[in-house]
Design a protein around this nucleic acid. Structure first.
Length: 859
DNA sequence: ATAGGGTTAG
């Protein structure tokens, strides 16, 4: 064998019967003219000589010699055995190139060797080579590859694949699978498709998944599961890539893929994308099928008008196509009902329900458990428990058996309406009807107890269910304490014992984190009890979530322990649960309630440090009037936060919570603060009490106050009252005066008169509007209430619009010189210059007022 | 191959 190998190494292969000299020469002569063998890339001719295809040496006549065939086979086998697969392959290649029927050669080789060779080469990354030479050769010659890949071969290939799968070598694995794309019977066996896809999902590699799926004749099914799996992992981008790829390879549009990607859009919360995909279908003039329509409606079900629009469009499409059967899909109607439910449109839901019932009476469709459960939920949410119970009757009459979900909705209908007893009786009915309650049912009931503050009862039920739900059987005399107590309580309330099956029957009670969260709420302000419950969760293999921690903060803070509540925020982070907006807002609420504004502001700052965005609830909580201690600093803090909120306004408005109510709090707060100026003066009459009803003006008012009270405007003695009503003007003036007062108290003296700009009507405009009275009100305030010296003056300004400029730079608005004013008027001849009214409260009188105040407050 | 129920902050 050593000889044979050295011959190979010297670029020579000689059959045993050939004379070395003559054949060698002939072979060489031909090798230069050979055209049938394609030179392989990366081929080093020195080490790996090529065998001319038409070489007489290797011609069929020569090969007829069984002995030489046997020799080559033997040589190849030996090489394979020694693991010299390059050389092994070269022999095989030369046989292929010779143009003879190679099947005999191949069948003579052990398939194990061939397979091993293939697999080993694959492992060495020599995938191209094996394909170009051996596989192509085999296929060209019409050799049935089934013979090549026997069980052993496939097993070792599979082992290789398993290894690659295990180490997550997606790229290698997919290349390997692509190599065998021509051998369908093999690739199906190599990897379990679901496992391969799972790996792609965890590696977030849509490309590998797409390449993999393309090798299968029924790729569309695979594509759908790829899209869905990426969606489940909230990886919409990858899902979309897979979807686009599925469109590329399939000749006709695959509705299944369309509906899947639409569902995935819903899963990932991008309902707008689902609409775009639907538009794409329309653009190609494709009528979606009922599944696509239903999914689209479902994903957009929170937008009733859109869902309705799609529903109508669907009706039209199918009417045109005269496939009336399509119209009567109960699912579409159920989704429509769900949409009404989400929009809390009870009447529309009722109408829809009636319509469906009519269609049912015509025999077009049949209401199902979804229909009934959904309409029950509509009533449950609207606290219309009677109507909900009526639906139950409808349902029983039509022969649909209520399931767990139906019962659950019925129970929450009563629970939401605060009818705890009724809810418990319904729960009992459910048990007697043989329906299996699940944790949600238990949770609903426990929550109902908490809602009506029957905390003890919640604990008794919880205890009782825990014991009856556990594996151990409770014998008659070992009936537990919680049980007897609970039964006693029921009988005391006049509930017949037969309706206590929820206490006597074994129940499949398996508490979840939600259950524990509800129970923690039932602790009221008993912090240690709540803490113990959180510990107890571990015995059920449960872990506290954000909600658990938030409740713990609330309970602890509620017991008056503010610092403890703040400590929990830290513990939460340490235990691996990052505090969210709600946890922070809860902690802020505690600080505000316990009159610790500084701590509240500190938390607000801290949450931003952790990049947690405050939402409307946060702003409303921190800007509550309780959170102001009456200092300028405190108010400034609030106003700064208010401004941040305004800036974030657009984003916040998307959270569906309107920010106006908040303005009201803040306005109240500013008013109270401002009116403090007059505390030692004569208290003003009811006319200024506190009510500003014009909401449209509020933001302007708040912005002005915020601006004038900003630290950067600490020294400014300028007020622009344009655009404000007289009550608002009063607030702004008082705010600035109070600022001046606080600054003086801090040792800063007044450097100038206080300037105030008022709006003056245009000339010749006298009759168009009534006088707003702002000027008079302000003068009265300054002169009469505060006894300040007021000087009136007028000045000219350019145009209305120009004067809306920054009020912090009054110089721009005043002292407008005659020239530029004229220039303006000539350019815009129709716009007359307006006259501004200006008031000044003199520095001297302000000083006097402040002195009076300090004297009077000292007394 | 579609859809439904419970828990947190103001």
């Amino acid at each position: 064998m050593r000889d044979a190998l050295s011959i190979l190494a010297s670029a020579t292969v000689l059959p045993p019967s050939a004379t070395p000299s003559g054949n060698y020469r002939r072979r060489h002569r031909h090798s230069t003219t050979s055209t049938t063998t394609k030179p392989r890339p990366n081929h080093n001719p020195k080490q790996k000589p090529q065998f001319p295809a038409s070489s007489p040496l290797l011609s069929s006549s020569r090969w007829a010699n069984r002995q030489s065939l046997a020799y080559y086979t033997k040589l190849a086998s030996k090489l394979a055995e020694d693991g010299k697969f390059d050389d092994f392959l070269m022999i095989a290649e030369s046989v292929v190139a010779s143009g003879v029927n190679i099947s005999e050669f191949l069948t003579l080789l052990k398939s194990e060797h061939l397979a091993h060779g293939v697999v080993r080469l694959l492992r060495d990354g020599k995938l191209d080579r094996i394909f170009v030479t051996l596989f192509n050769g085999i296929q060209k010659l019409g050799v049935e590859p089934a013979g090549l890949f026997d069980e052993v071969a496939i097993e070792s290939l599979k082992a290789e694949c398993r290894g690659l799968l295990k180490c997550g070598e997606l790229e290698r694995l997919v290349s390997l699978i692509e190599m065998f794309a021509g051998f369908q019977f093999i690739i199906k066996e190599l990897v379990e498709p679901s496992e391969f896809i799972k790996l792609c999902i965890t590696k977030r590699d849509p490309t590998a998944a797409i390449r993999y799926a393309q090798n299968f004749p029924h790729a569309e099914v695979l594509f759908c599961s790829i899209i869905l799996e990426f969606g489940k992992k909230r990886d919409l981008d990858s899902a979309l890539k897979a979807f686009e790829a599925s469109k590329q390879i399939l000749s006709s549009p695959n509705m299944h893929a369309y509906r899947t990607i639409i569902d995935v859009c819903g899963l990932c919360g991008d309902y707008l994308k689902s609409r775009a995909i639907y538009e794409g279908l329309l653009a190609e003039n494709i009528t979606p099928n009922i599944y696509v329509f239903n999914s689209l409606m479902n994903v957009n079900s929170h937008d009733l008008s859109y869902t309705l629009g799609i529903y109508k469009k669907m009706e039209v499409s199918y009417c045109k196509m005269q496939t009336l059967g399509m119209m009567s899909d109960i699912t579409s109607h159920n989704i429509l009902l769900k949409s009404c439910c989400l929009a809390a449109k009870v009447e529309l839901a009722q109408d829809t329900y009636k319509q469906i019932r009519e269609l049912e009476s015509k025999g077009v469709l049949k209401l199902d458990d979804f229909t009934y459960s959904t309409i029950i939920k509509v009533f449950a949410d609207a606290k219309m428990w009677k109507q909900a119970l009526e639906i139950k009757e409808d349902m029983l009459l039509s022969g649909i058996v209520p399931n767990t979900i139906t019962w659950s909705s019925l129970i929450s209908a009563c629970a939401n309406a605060g009818l705890l007893e009724k809810a418990i009786i319904l729960f009992d009915e459910m048990l007697q009807a043989g329906a299996q309650p699940n944790t949600q049912c238990f949770n609903t009931l426990l929550h109902a107890c908490v809602e009506v503050c029957q905390f003890d009862r919640a604990f008794r039920l919880f205890q009782c269910w825990k014991e009856r739900g556990s594996q151990q059987t409770i014998s008659g005399d070992m009936i537990n304490h919680a049980y007897t107590e609970a039964v006693d309580q029921m009988t005391e309330m006049g509930v017949p014992l037969r309706l206590c099956s929820h206490l006597t029957m074994r129940v499949p009670f398996r508490p979840t984190t939600s259950t524990y969260n509800i129970m923690m709420k039932a602790c009221g302000t008993d912090y240690y009890r709540a803490k113990d419950l959180m510990e107890e969760m571990k015995t059920f293999n449960l872990t506290p979530n954000h909600i658990s921690w938030s409740i713990l903060i609330d309970v602890c803070g509620g017991s008056g322990n503010v610092l403890g509540a703040l400590q929990i925020l830290t513990s939460m982070r340490e235990s691996g649960v990052q505090p969210d907006v709600i946890a922070y807002t809860t902690a802020i609420k505690i600080c505000v309630k316990q009159k610790k504004p500084k701590l509240a502001f500190k938390l607000f700052k801290e949450m931003k440090k952790y990049q947690i965005k405050p939402n409307m609830v946060t702003y409303n909580t921190i800007l509550r009037d309780r959170n102001v201690d009456g200092s300028l600093r405190g108010l400034q803090h609030c106003l700064a936060i208010y401004q941040q909120m305004r800036k974030a306004g657009n984003a916040l408005m998307c959270t569906r919570i309107w920010y106006k109510p908040n303005d009201h709090h803040l306005k109240q707060l500013i008013e109270d603060w401002c009116e403090g100026v007059l505390q030692t003066e004569r208290r003003s009459e009811g006319q200024y009490a506190s009510h500003i009803t014009d909401f449209g003006h509020q933001s302007l008012l708040l912005e002005k106050v915020t601006e004038y009270l900003q630290d950067s405007n600490a020294e400014s003695l300028f007020i622009d009252l344009r655009g404000l009503t007289k009550v608002e003007a009063r607030i702004v003036v008082l705010a600035v005066i109070r600022k001046i007062k606080e600054k003086c108290a801090a040792g800063k003296s007044i450097k100038d008169d206080l300037s105030i700009i008022l709006e003056q009507q245009r000339h010749g405009d006298r009759n168009s509007r009534e006088d707003s009275g702002v000027g008079e009100a302000v003068i009265r305030l300054l002169k009469h209430d505060l006894a300040l010296e007021v000087i009136e003056a007028s000045s000219r300004a350019r145009s209305d619009r120009d004067n809306k400029g920054s009020p912090t730079s009054p110089g721009l608005n005043f002292e407008v010189d005659e020239k530029s004013s004229l220039a303006e008027t000539s350019e815009y001849p129709t716009r007359r210059p307006i006259i501004l009214r200006r008031l000044k409260a003199t520095k001297k009188s302000l000083h006097q007022w402040l002195r009076r105040k300090t004297v009077s407050s000292k007394r």
